[in-house]
């Protein structure tokens, strides 16, 4: 706390920042718990995609509300956009690679509407 500004709005911003920091940290922790507890690669991927992305966004929101300077906020917005754009791509590539190399126990999937044969995988087109 470098500056003391006893205004209502700054107090409110700090409170909201604190709440979103806590929520973000909780979601990050939950994502990690999921990544350790889930027993399939795809289940873990779910944990790493959704709660982790929102957790990071909330942490950055808390940070933005604390520093309150435009140059910082624009950079943080950029991080959020990168995160939103890249996390699904990474998740998709990892899960597709898992399927194609046969690392997924397909019997555990009920129903499994994709009859997949790792040896006869369709050619890459991306």
């Amino acid at each position: 706390m470098t500056e003391v500004d006893p205004g209502f709005w700054t107090t409110l911003a700090d409170v909201v920042a604190g709440v979103s920091l806590l929520a973000g940290a909780f979601l990050t922790l939950a994502a990690a718990v999921g990544a350790v507890r889930f027993d399939s690669l795809l289940g873990r991927m779910h944990a790493v995609t959704k709660p982790q992305v929102l957790g990071l966004i909330l942490l950055l929101l808390g940070l933005a509300l604390r520093v309150r300077s435009w140059s910082a906020v624009t950079m943080l917005a950029l991080v959020v956009v990168f995160q939103l754009a890249t996390a699904p791509v990474a998740a998709h590539l990892v899960s597709r690679a898992g399927f194609r190399t046969g690392k997924i126990d397909e019997d555990a999937l009920v129903p499994n509407e994709m009859e997949h044969d790792a040896a006869a995988a369709p050619p890459d087109r991306d």
Partner: peptide, 16 residues
Amino acid sequence: ELLAAALVGVVAIEAA
């Protein structure tokens, strides 16, 4: 990826 996210989180908390 999770570790990188946690590192980003720690840096963000410190900066906040």
